[in-house]
Design a protein around this nucleic acid. Structure first.
Lengths: 332, 332
DNA sequence: ATGAAAGCGCTAACAG
DNA sequence: CTGTTAGCGCTTTCAT
């Protein structure tokens, strides 16, 4: 059994309150006493029990992180941003994979609240009423990262996805492409089915192009699904001359499929992706992509959460980070 | 304030002990009482406080996971394996990035122990005496995943890295390569500087080839460092005709560098990598690689940890998972 | 089958 | 500056 605060108190000949004070860096302790206590701590190898502390103080310095899939390149970068800032503010994170499954998500929220986390960073797809209910019932702050809440009720950190897609498609249209394909992510998620699709449509319209259903499809973010979607596009009569793809892995699938079919990228078909993970520079040709500040979204979301947990004032509950479009060799 | 077990007890007209019993599924409760209590729980929206429970029971159903960098493709796959099995056994994980920095590692171990985790999965580079001390002082089990402890004192899950490298180099030698390059990971880590290097040397020897220092270098696992190492190799007089690279990202750097210099893979230079992440199928040519069962290493490590936490008997404290070599198009 | 009561190890008033 | 004293919310004997 390891030493408790009580053991230290006895060893140092003081009360537990005093030990608690020196452990917590309370200045109201005479230097000599502090020294006595510190030595006793060292001698006994005392290590404060965070669980007991959590129970007494009602703070665990632990935050929950619900993420669709940590093994995805995109989300693991986000997670790193979250964890770095958490560490900076002395929090630890409990990491949970949801696979974007609503039941799991709800269950995880409850588990985390049961564990008395001080806050939660949530990443997911669709946020529906049931999520909102849970979030509101929680007595700790929640921040959404790279996840949109239609109602703008929950604090969140995102980029302007609709605008980003609008810019990509516009540029593609301006450089002469008349048939621009769009391989979206799962469209049951509003972020895809609504915002990104809107950006696509608005850009077409703005450039006098007509929307063609045969040029829009969806994948599940995997390499394989990108390859399949590309095969579908490239085997129809009206082949697109440019394709915007909603993830890097899918985009690589598209490039490979195109090349396998003897098409040249970007000469025959231009490709633009959407995550700007490290992968973009590893493919040949290097991939043009919406440069979403993935790490930063995580970092800023966590930073926002710390403010909320601290009851600090925040300018705005929803923050929108800037994005760029990085044009590389997969486009002309 | 949310309801406590005491509130539920009063609401249901029983004692807290009884509430505790139904919450924990203790069979010694009359069905009618159980029902009464369950209803009270529902009515009050009672959710057990895991911190209080942890303090009383000395179990947190939380395990610590120390990982070099969650944003690495390799480690995030490992982490997913860990988390899946943890979930299966009703544990949550506290995830911490160490960047393989020893001070951080030691500090994280202490933080996690302070948080009273029931066990730790540790991934890192060099395990030295100080680590071992910490591990031994901890009163909870520790399992190393994809991390070797020279002394074999700490439970661990690995593949036989030396043997795997031996096989790759042997095959390369047998197919006629006489100058086989080796881009290792950081060699201050015994796994690289000792075991993998040994495998390389032994294979050369076994095939009558002489060891040449100019054909061995190291990188930091990044794409860039792979590219640089390749540039170094390919610009010297005695160019290797085959290169074994210790990570997928570095290997892609090698392929790209070779191609940028006008060399063909595998015709002019063959490339074999070492992690078999999803990336191997995304590059062209697809990458031959040691098929390390990354996800499984994590899963098995976590499974082993659950047994240890449960005081179950385990056949062997160190497990060695089988590996394959997947030959793809980056080799002849 | 159920209840009473004693902690688990710590923080946080409140005194002094 | 230091000590006393209640809890925090739950588990766990030990009775009954």
């Amino acid at each position: 059994m390891s030493a408790t605060i009580y053991d230290v108190a006895r060893e140092a000949g003081v009360s537990m309150a005093t030990v608690s004070r020196v452990v917590n860096g309370n200045p109201n302790v005479k230097p000599t006493t502090r020294k006595k206590v510190s030595e006793a701590i060292k001698r006994l190898g005392y290590r404060p029990n965070a669980v007991a502390r959590g129970l007494a103080s009602k703070k665990t310095t632990t935050v929950g992180v619900i993420i669709p899939d940590i093994s995805s390149v995109y989300f693991s970068e986000l997670a790193r941003g979250i964890e770095d800032i958490a560490t900076m503010y002395k929090y630890n994170i409990i990491l949970c994979n949801s696979d974007q499954n609503k039941d799991k998500e709800i269950h995880l929220i409850q588990t985390l609240l049961g564990k008395q986390v001080d806050g939660i960073v949530f990443m997911g797809g669709k946020i529906d009423q049931e999520h909102i209910e849970e979030f509101k019932q929680a007595n700790v702050p929640i921040v959404l990262a790279s996840t949109v809440d239609e109602q703008h009720e929950i604090p969140s950190v995102n980029i302007d996805y609709e605008q980003a897609v609008f810019e990509v498609i516009s540029k593609l249209a301006e450089s002469g492409n008349e048939r621009i394909g769009f391989i979206n992510g799962p469209t049951d998620i509003p972020l895809n089915g609504k915002h990104k699709l809107n950006g696509y449509k608005r850009a077409l319209e703005a450039h006098g192009l007509t929307f063609n259903e045969a040029l829009v499809t969806e994948g599940d973010y995997s390499y394989e699904s990108g390859k399949e979607a590309a095969a579908q596009f490239l085997n129809q009569d009206i082949k697109p001359t440019a394709i915007f793809v909603d993830s890097d892995e899918m985009a690589i699938g598209v490039i490979n499929e195109a090349q396998d079919e003897g098409l040249k990228v970007p000469e025959d078909v231009e490709v633009v992706s959407s995550e700007n993970t490290r992968l973009v520079q590893m493919v040949r040709p290097t991939l043009s992509s919406i440069a979403e500040p993935t790490y930063d979204i995580g970092a800023v979301a966590m930073r926002l959460l710390t403010k909320l947990m601290n009851n600090e004032k925040v300018d705005s509950i929803t923050v929108q980070l800037p994005h760029r479009i990085d044009w590389r060799n997969s486009t002309k």
